[in-house]
Nucleic acid binder design. Structure first.
Length: 187
DNA sequence: AGAACGATTAACT
DNA sequence: GTTAATCGTTCTG
């Protein structure tokens, strides 16, 4: 019997990003197993919270255990889970899921793509789960969110983050080893 | 005020 | 491998 890895929203975003691999995330009953995450922090030049609180990133400076939703490239809605003490500005970007529940609704939202690409990337996760600005700032421990920690400690691989120009060398992207549902392979 | 830039994706060569 | 789409935020003058 192995104790479930509890999700600690009070700790660092790097620790939470690692612990989230293998956890199950649902929004209105639609979602799956988290297979890829990235950590961001106020001391991190690549983070939206680096310049301090503003209208867009306010949720990152709100209470831990809540959602931070932002618009990416004017097109996509991406979901983060806020951690650390309120006011700090740290969070974890959900980059990919292995779809397990609500497949039909995901296929309707995502259009004609193979199931492997339903949630392989932060923008795709947002679209498949129906994430909107209305989810920004909502608590993760009640509807429409459902978050279940991984039953066993997952086999996690680490690598540099994707799509950033600052602090590219920081190994703050985490994935489930061998998963075919990640947005990109790990070296 | 205007230009440049994204925590991206889909389509194309 | 390259590139267009698309729009709020940030940088520059």
């Amino acid at each position: 019997m192995v104790a479930p890895a509890a999700l600690d929203f009070q700790g660092s975003s790097v620790d939470l990003a690692r612990a989230l691999i293998g956890a199950v995330l649902l929004v209105d009953g639609v979602g799956g197993r988290i297979v890829e995450t990235e950590a961001y922090d106020a001391e991190d030049p690549a983070s939206h919270s680096h310049r301090g609180p503003d209208a867009r990133n306010a949720s990152m400076f709100g209470p831990p255990g809540h959602a931070y939703v932002y618009r990416s490239y004017g097109i996509h809605w991406c979901l983060n889970l806020v951690c650390r003490e309120a006011g700090h500005g740290a969070g974890v970007l959900i980059r990919a899921l292995e779809p397990t529940e609500g497949l039909d609704r995901m296929r309707t939202r995502r259009g004609p793509v193979v199931d492997l690409l339903l949630c392989a990337g932060p923008g795709r996760v947002g679209q498949a789960l129906g994430i909107t600005p209305a989810h920004d700032g909502l608590p993760l421990d009640r509807a429409p969110f459902e978050l279940r920690p991984a039953a066993l400690r997952a086999d996690v691989v680490v690598g540099p983050r994707i799509g950033i120009s600052k602090a590219q060398e920081m190994p703050w992207r985490f994935g489930l080893r061998g998963s075919r549902f990640v947005s990109r392979r790990f070296p």
